[in-house]
């Protein structure tokens, strides 16, 4: 049976892609962000995941408002990246795991999650950059992937409570996969930031830190809030914490903190990183 080793949640700001392409890891602006990753790399070397399931949100690359799925699961042999209209550097294609994708789809639909399934799917920076941050030295992502996309574009968005349940069901589905594989969960986005409106530039470190801490011992904490309340507290794009929440919810039993990092600003964003290991 498959075993979930843990989860890594990280911000996915597009500017990270430019910084990687320009080798700015030691630049004073970027160093506090990139310095968060070596302890996470060391942990990955130890747990050696065979597969990574990535919870992310599409930013208008694959999905438009003509058809906007609440939850979409990739079921492709390969996923391609694109420049997203503003010329960010692209990364090589990501290998899929159709066997796990379809297992997850079957199990989640059986558990009353009505998904959109995607045999072709472009993946944007929210999917690609976290993987590049986790495996920076490999020419292409060395671990095959299953993308799970949550709508954070058009309201109504799924509630925090619903995303928690999705994550929990996803974790149970993965654990019942009849393959002897180690699976890593990745949740991308956040933390507090607001790109649009007169309140652009809003960040809320006190809330971000409370949220990060809650994921270790009290992961349902943030489900007390409506999405509008989360936007009020974290900004229009701070709602991306839904992916962190779902990733944490996928972990069975107790977790321990492997490493965390928090830094303001990366672009307009309060950046966060939180790696959690499943306790055996």
């Amino acid at each position: 049976m498959a075993r979930i080793v843990g989860a890594i949640n990280t911000s996915h700001v597009p500017a990270i892609g430019r910084a990687i392409a320009a080798n700015l890891q030691d630049d004073p602006y970027w160093k506090p962000f990139f310095d968060g990753f070596p302890p996470v790399h060391a942990w990955l070397d130890k747990v050696r995941p065979d597969v990574v399931v990535v919870l992310y949100n599409d930013h208008g690359l694959n999905f438009f408002l003509d058809k906007m799925p609440t939850f979409a699961v990739g079921a492709a042999p390969e996923y391609h990246n694109a420049d997203e209209g503003w010329g960010i550097p692209t990364l090589p294609p990501f290998k899929g795991v159709p066997g796990l994708s379809w297992h997850v789809i079957n199990e989640l639909v059986a558990r009353e999650f009505d998904l959109t399934t995607c045999q072709e799917m472009l993946v944007d920076h929210a999917f690609s950059l976290p993987l590049k941050l986790l495996w920076p030295d490999a020419p292409s992502c060395p671990v095959p992937t299953v993308p799970v996309c949550i709508n954070t574009v058009q309201y109504p968005l799924p509630s925090a409570r619903r995303c928690y349940k999705l994550g929990k069901a996803l974790g149970e589905a993965i654990a019942s996969w009849d393959e002897d594989k180690r699976v890593l969960i990745v949740g991308t986005g956040g933390l507090s930031h607001q790109l649009d409106g007169e309140r652009a530039g809003f960040v809320n470190p006190a809330f971000d830190k409370a949220f990060m801490d809650s994921l270790i011992d009290n992961p349902e904490w943030v489900t007390q809030y409506s999405n509008e309340e989360i936007v009020e507290k974290t900004g229009t794009q701070g709602i991306e914490l839904l992916m962190w929440l779902a990733a944490r919810a996928a972990l069975p039993g107790k977790v321990s903190r492997v490493h965390s990092n928090y830094h303001i600003p990366i672009s307009n964003t309060a950046s966060g990183l939180l790696a959690m290991a499943c306790e055996d």
Partner: peptide, 13 residues
């Protein structure tokens, strides 16, 4: 949305 947030639009229907 039930909540009005200053300087912020919820991209609703």
């Amino acid at each position: 949305p039930a909540l009005q947030i200053p300087g912020t639009r919820i991209f609703d229907s």
